[in-house]
Simulated scan of single mutants.
Amino acid sequence: MVALPSLAELEAAARIVYAALPPTPQYAWPLLARRTGCTVWVKHENHTPIGAFKVRGGLAYMDRLKRERPHVKGVVSATRGNHGQSIAFAAGRAGVHATIVVPHGNSVEKNAAMRAFGAELLERGHDFDAAKEAAMALAAERGLEMVPSFDMDLVMGVASYSLELLRAAPDLDTVYVPIGLGSGICGMIAARNALGLKTRIVGVVASGAPAYALSFAAGKPVATNAAETFADGVAVRGPDALALDIIRANAERIVQVGDGAIMAAMRFYYEDTHQLAEGAGACALAALLQERDLMRGKAVGLILSGGNIDRPLYAQIIGSGA
């Protein structure tokens, strides 16, 4: 059994986060309730300085790095965008140079945001996993600290959003959380357990990137040959072993949702709340709609994990459908 952070440890990490940003809101939206047949609380992680929850983890990670290795030469990490923005934002505050590796064809607007936060941006490989391999090679070549996309410091930082949501709405029956490499859902698990709540936690992946769902079912890491989804925040081919252990021991289930359902959920977020959700950010709503009959009449939390999507793609999605 993996030892999870205590409430005191989570609150200490939250204090680091709050030195840079305030808590984000959570609202119960009546039109979403009408659409889904249940009370729906949305955690708005699209309201952070980088437009995504990942900033919390970067701040906690960089705080420990600067305390334990104050003379670190620099950091490098791989990303599809939000993790890279997090590291760039936190590194800039800490006075540390950040190099971020993205795959070719990555989001133009996310790339621009990372550069604006001061990162050196490099394009390597055809997808996230290939970019990660390039980042690891660069760390060895330049003597840089490799920042992983899953780490317990990251988990403790992002758990602050879960503490906020679960304290504001402690009677939630179920919370749906999108899974990229797992820091968000593991942070939710850590917060739920530390608060002693019985809230069920359901992970969500894209059906075109089902590695975590396959691994959850198999009881061991199962990688896929491709991650074919427009929702770049969940486009992962291989699960993290530690994250998988935590999820398997504590989550209720993992739901797969198709790209069409994710796009529809993005439109519903706009129609019902006038909030912009990126693909990964809309996965939780897509899963709730898929399980609407199971959840009818219950109180449900949805993690809107981010709102970073290129304008032309968002315009295409928001303008399509009924």
Rank of each mutant, 00 (worst) to 15 (best):
Thr24Trp: 12
Phe53Ile: 06
Arg69Gln: 15
His44Met: 13
Gly57Asn: 06
His71Met: 14
Gly74Glu: 02
Glu68Arg: 12
Ala88Lys: 00
Glu11Met: 11
Ile50Ser: 00
Leu65Phe: 00
Ala52His: 10
Thr48Gly: 07
Val76Cys: 04
Met62Pro: 10
Val76Ser: 05
Val96Asn: 02
Ala14Lys: 08
Ala19Val: 12
His44Arg: 15
Ala60Ser: 11
Trp41Met: 13
Lys73Asp: 03
Arg80Glu: 11
His44Thr: 15
Val55Glu: 08
Asp63Asn: 13
Val72His: 04
Pro70Met: 07
Pro23Arg: 13
Ile50Phe: 09
Glu9Lys: 11
Val96His: 01
Arg93Thr: 04
Ile50Tyr: 03
Thr79Phe: 06
Ala33Thr: 13
Ala98His: 01
Arg69Thr: 14
Arg35His: 09
Pro25Gly: 01
Ala52Ile: 12
Gly74Val: 02
Arg15Gly: 01
Ile100Gly: 03
His44Val: 14
Phe89Pro: 02
Pro5Gly: 05
His83Glu: 02
Ala52Gly: 06
Ala13Lys: 10
Ala78Val: 01
Gln85Phe: 12
Val55Cys: 11
Pro30Ala: 05
Trp41Gln: 13
Leu10Trp: 02
Gly37Ser: 08
Gly95Ile: 07
Ala78Phe: 00
Gly81Pro: 08
Ala98Leu: 03
Pro70Asp: 05
Lys54Cys: 05
Arg56Thr: 06
Ala94His: 07
Leu21Phe: 15
Leu10Ser: 01
Ala13Ser: 11
Gly74Tyr: 10
Gly84Asn: 01
Ala98Val: 05
Glu11Lys: 15
Arg67Met: 09
Gly95Lys: 04
Tyr27Asn: 14
Tyr27Glu: 15
Pro70Val: 05
Gly57Thr: 02
Gly57Val: 05
Phe89Gly: 01
Ala91Asn: 00
Ile16Glu: 13
Gly58Tyr: 07
Leu65Thr: 09
Thr48Asn: 05
Gln26Met: 13
Trp29Gln: 07
Gly81Trp: 01
Thr79Asn: 05
Ala13Asn: 07
Tyr18Arg: 15
Arg15Asn: 05
Tyr27Phe: 14
Tyr18Ala: 04
Ala13Phe: 07
Arg56Glu: 00
Glu45Gln: 04
Leu7Pro: 00
Ile50Asp: 05
Tyr27Ile: 15
Ala91Ile: 06
Phe53Ala: 10
Met62Lys: 02
Tyr61Ser: 07
Met62Asn: 07
Arg67Gln: 11
Pro70His: 04
Val42Ser: 10
Gly51Asp: 11
Thr79Ala: 06
Ile87Thr: 08
Ile100Thr: 00
His97Ile: 03
Gly92Lys: 12
Cys38Thr: 13
Thr48Trp: 04
Pro70Lys: 11
His44Tyr: 15
Ala90His: 03
Asn82Cys: 12
Pro22Leu: 04
Arg15Ser: 07
Thr24Arg: 03
Leu59Met: 13
Leu21His: 14
Ala8Trp: 13
Phe53Ser: 00
Leu32Cys: 10
Glu68Met: 11
Gly81Arg: 03
Ala91Tyr: 01
Ile87Pro: 01
Val17Cys: 12
Val42Lys: 10
Leu10His: 03
Val75Ser: 04
Arg64Phe: 09
Gln85Asp: 07
Glu68Asn: 11
Ile16Phe: 14
Arg15Phe: 00
